[in-house]
Simulated scan of single mutants.
Amino acid sequence: MHTASAGNANDNRTALGIACGMGAGALWGLVFLAPELVRDFTPLQLAIGRYLAYGVIAATLIAPRWRGLAASISRRDWIALAWLSLAGNTLYYVLLSTAVQTGGIAMTSLVIGFLPVAVTIIGSRDHGAVPLAKLVPSLLLCAAGAMCIGWQAITAPASGDAGRQLVGLACAIGALMAWTAYAVGNARCLTRLDQVSIHDWNLLTGLVTGAQALFLIPVSLAFEPIRHAGIAWAQFAGVSVAVAVAASIMGNALWNRMSRLLPLTMVGQMILFETLFALLYGFLWEQRLPLPLEVAAFVLVVASVLSCIAAHRRHPRDAAPSQSVTGEQLA
């Protein structure tokens, strides 16, 4: 009876974690559209606008309980927040925006689509993780889906010259590396920090990222002169606030909750939802239906996630992915 109850509890954790992962992916996919909506602004300006808004919102929400929360954060935690904010927010978004503006949404989605492979391979070394051998079918399906998207991007008529495409590819690979480091580091921090709620960790991340954005303003002013009209700045502000609320506040909160519910090997697979939604939004933006290779990519990616879920259901977890998580910690 106890075994059956434990099994149901694990199933419920997994289902809730997957739902949170899907929600985060749907919100994060909007990030791929932002550079297209305000193409007149540089990637650095986009990052500053988004993360200044994120920081202001986070500071407002965290102010009432700042004193008690700050006392529970150690020097080690602040250092972790600093590098996680840089890798997963500031650096990632600058590289992603550059990749979208120079290489296009499809190519960028392809490279980011390999995030599950990188994170899953790293997570397979964690204690109690599903052995990598059992995840091979899922990883192969993921890689096949990403290759379908890549082949479509390569064979489609290029919108720019080869040099721009290479710059876009290099930035997308850089974004892949930055976000892989963030996904792994953030999941492990959430496992360690039982005294900090997911909501507060997200707000603290916003606070640190907002501070980093402030330091980038002089850099932007020095190399990127202000030359936009008032209406363009209004549109830029609207997009920045919308992305900050949807992706940084709501999307990060869902992702952090998922990170405490699922093992790291499964966390990696959830990143695929961002790729899927980014492609969907790209099709809507371009006002077209997906091509055969793109449909195949959708099918393969979904099959990859389902295969990963099946592998975790068959693998008895000796240890929960993040110890015991109370309702307060998930708030």
Score class of each variant (00 low, 15 high):
60 T>G: 14
60 T>A: 14
61 L>S: 06
61 L>G: 07
62 I>H: 12
62 I>Q: 11
63 A>D: 11
63 A>T: 12
63 A>H: 13
64 P>A: 15
66 W>A: 13
71 A>Y: 13
73 I>W: 03
74 S>N: 09
74 S>R: 10
75 R>T: 11
75 R>I: 09
76 R>T: 13
77 D>V: 10
79 I>W: 13
82 A>E: 07
82 A>S: 15
83 W>D: 04
83 W>L: 09
84 L>G: 00
84 L>I: 10
84 L>K: 01
85 S>L: 11
86 L>T: 05
86 L>Q: 03
87 A>F: 14
90 T>S: 13
91 L>E: 01
92 Y>R: 05
94 V>N: 01
95 L>C: 13
96 L>A: 14
96 L>Y: 08
96 L>D: 03
97 S>M: 14
97 S>Y: 06
97 S>P: 08
98 T>G: 07
101 Q>C: 12
102 T>N: 11
102 T>V: 09
103 G>D: 04
105 I>K: 01
106 A>D: 11
109 S>P: 06
109 S>E: 07
110 L>A: 06
110 L>V: 12
111 V>E: 02
114 F>H: 00
114 F>T: 04
114 F>A: 04
115 L>F: 09
116 P>G: 11
116 P>Q: 10
119 V>N: 00
120 T>V: 09
121 I>Y: 01
124 S>I: 04
124 S>K: 02
125 R>W: 14
127 H>P: 06
130 V>P: 01
133 A>W: 08
134 K>Q: 15
136 V>I: 15
136 V>D: 05
137 P>E: 04
137 P>W: 04
138 S>R: 00
139 L>E: 00
140 L>N: 05
145 G>H: 03
145 G>I: 06
145 G>Y: 02
147 M>L: 14
148 C>N: 03
148 C>E: 02
148 C>R: 00
149 I>K: 01
149 I>Q: 02
150 G>V: 03
151 W>S: 05
154 I>D: 11
154 I>N: 08
155 T>D: 14
156 A>D: 12
157 P>D: 15
158 A>E: 07
159 S>E: 15
160 G>P: 03
161 D>I: 14
161 D>A: 15
162 A>C: 07
166 L>Y: 12
166 L>A: 11
166 L>T: 10
166 L>D: 03
166 L>F: 10
167 V>H: 04
169 L>H: 03
172 A>M: 04
173 I>R: 02
